[in-house]
Design a protein around this nucleic acid. Structure first.
Lengths: 342, 342
DNA sequence: GTTAGCACTCTATCTCAATGAGTGCTAACA
DNA sequence: TGTTAGCACTCATTGAGATAGAGTGCTAAC
């Protein structure tokens, strides 16, 4: 059985209709909805073929048809028309919040959830493979040092260190000089043992502190590495197919436990559509346990100086792919532009 | 109608039973459960009295009785026996995470939710009415300054400032000196306009920067002031009386929008039980919209150096008050101890 | 290849009766 | 006067038909 033009039109009509209504679609509906001028009986024949090919299925005998994962996939790959959608408020947010990355992400993800009516998530741009800009040690009191670590892209991490030895202001100044001469501009991934050893040697009797600082740098960076912001978890309760207690609980929980979303939001290699930066995972295609009844659309974004993050939308399999993909495309370029010009 | 000993016993039995089962309690059940040796008919008479007094009600004729808000209130005020409950894992968390306040709070709130099976929330200790420890300005590049603000209790805030004028290292050093001499040890609430004016004057041509730094200090402190961590939002789906789509959606949403929880978690004056630091809000007693079907138990805690925060548990009105109050009492003292000894 | 017609299937909805838990009231009892 | 047995009554819940309606697959005619 091969896919011809007419079958494509019919499949498209079925999916479009199902996306709108969420109800199984019958042959009569299609007969009237399309301008093929075919009777319902003819549509029925075609539908039987489409079912045999695995694009649609019946929830039960004597019900209309609903798309299968394969059907959605076909739709997304060949029939989708991503609408370029402006989110008016988004612009303001992007302009205002430029100074506080965290706030900006929170606002973006919230607006995204409100606008799409699906669950939204966004990762803070990853700092991996980026350069240390500078390190600032300050004496807090006799036993504590404050280490402020600034990474290319003005990402700031700080940590309080408990020192074994008492350090006076002068020593702290020296250590600052040493650390910055050695580490400024060095990609984090390139800090290796021999560099550390060299610094420890130069630090002389204070080598212990150097070790602690380096540890703190490593920890500060790796620990908060994948920060995920989410919004609109409760939106999934809007969709009856996800709203039963069992599923909803698991899904909302996954949103709460942001760590579980990591797999979704860390792009792995370049697959299919990834030249556009947008990926669609339908039902069982997802990598995350307990999301088999959902679809996930992710988009990568980049903040000018090499900081990369990912945006994700989680909704029912019958989500409005056109709208979601369009919105993400738009947002993606907005974010890219923003920091290129900012 | 006055409350006598027997009525108290019966009311207690009704509430205890209802807390366990969640089902309306009938007269026969009470007749057998208590050791009063009364027939169900007698119990019925007493129940009619209790209903008239407003402590219990019937969901419909020919159903058993369930406690009213007033009934719960009576229970909590006079009949509750808070069990001192150890949470074994909690100890480890408190010991391990001492260094990273944020992580500690996240772990605590998560364990609390898991242990109680209710929704849990905790505020980061408030920095209000605390003293500035020191301010550190550093030059990031020609146009940007990094301001690190450390508050008593080692709470750190940082901010990147865009400066109008170019500043060399020396100037930054001077500004640092100036800021710290003037502001170190000063309670945040006492920074006023005349102090700022004085500093600006001393800063001479760099007075603009001083203004920006002060703004940043104010902003940094006020903005993230009430940081709320939550966990276990989905636990409310366990309780049928809260699990219908309408209510559940609103409740989980409130959890997501942590800002809305602020009212719950900012103690206002000293009411009823507050000498123990524990407050119980039953049903309509709550201050937050959309939580009329819940009860909320809050406990204040203090981290040694005057930092105060609040822990909250949200559950159905038929929550296990004994357990929750016991757990919070325990946790509260654990937290207090921790930083006193740490 | 397309269509009208028809029997068939299955879900959803409604009604109706039966069940059972629990009550309130009355009259008898200690 | 407080307690209890007994009984009629109420009302939510449950399950069993009965019914309607949507939609299909198949056949035969166009």
């Amino acid at each position: 059985m091969e896919m011809d033009a007419r079958k494509t039109v019919i499949l498209q009509a079925i999916i479009r209709n199902y996306l709108e209504t969420g109800e199984p679609v019958g042959s009569r509906t299609i007969s009237k909805d399309t301008d093929l001028n075919l009777s319902s009986a003819t549509i029925r024949n075609e539908m039987a073929d489409l079912e045999e090919m695995g694009y649609i299925e019946q929830p039960h005998t004597s019900a209309g048809r609903i798309p299968t994962d394969k059907g959605y996939r076909f739709y997304v790959d060949t029939m989708m028309e991503a609408k370029d959608r402006e989110m008016s408020e988004m612009k303001d947010v992007l302009l205002e919040r430029q100074d506080r990355l965290e706030d900006m992400l929170r606002s973006v993800v919230k607006l995204l959830a409100q606008d799409t009516k699906y669950g939204a998530m966004i990762t803070a741009p990853s700092t991996h493979s980026n350069k240390l800009k500078f390190i600032q040690l300050s004496r807090v009191d006799t036993a504590h040092l404050l280490a402020v670590i600034v990474i290319e892209g003005n990402v700031i991490r700080n940590r309080i260190l408990t020192t074994q030895e008492e350090l006076d202001e002068e020593t702290v100044l020296k250590l600052n000089m040493l650390l910055n001469t050695q580490l400024s501009g060095v990609p984090i991934s390139e800090i290796n043992l021999s560099m550390i050893a060299a610094m420890k040697q130069q630090a002389g009797i204070h080598s212990g502190v150097i070790g602690e600082v380096i540890d703190a740098v490593a920890e500060a960076i790796s620990e908060e590495d994948l920060q995920v912001y989410t919004s609109g978890a409760t939106n999934i309760l809007r969709y009856p197919e996800l709203a039963d207690n069992e599923k909803a609980s698991q899904l909302i929980n996954t949103f709460e436990e942001k760590a579980l979303l990591g797999d979704l939001l860390t792009p792995e290699g370049t697959e299919g559509e990834s030249e556009t930066g947008i990926q669609v995972y339908i039902g069982s295609e997802t990598k995350v346990q307990g999301m088999q009844d959902c679809s996930v659309v992710t988009a990568s974004y980049e903040l000018g100086d090499g900081l990369r993050g990912t945006i994700g939308i989680v909704g029912p399999k019958r989500m409005d792919y056109d709208k979601v993909v369009g919105t993400l495309k738009q947002l993606r370029t907005k974010l890219d532009d923003l920091y290129r010009n900012g």
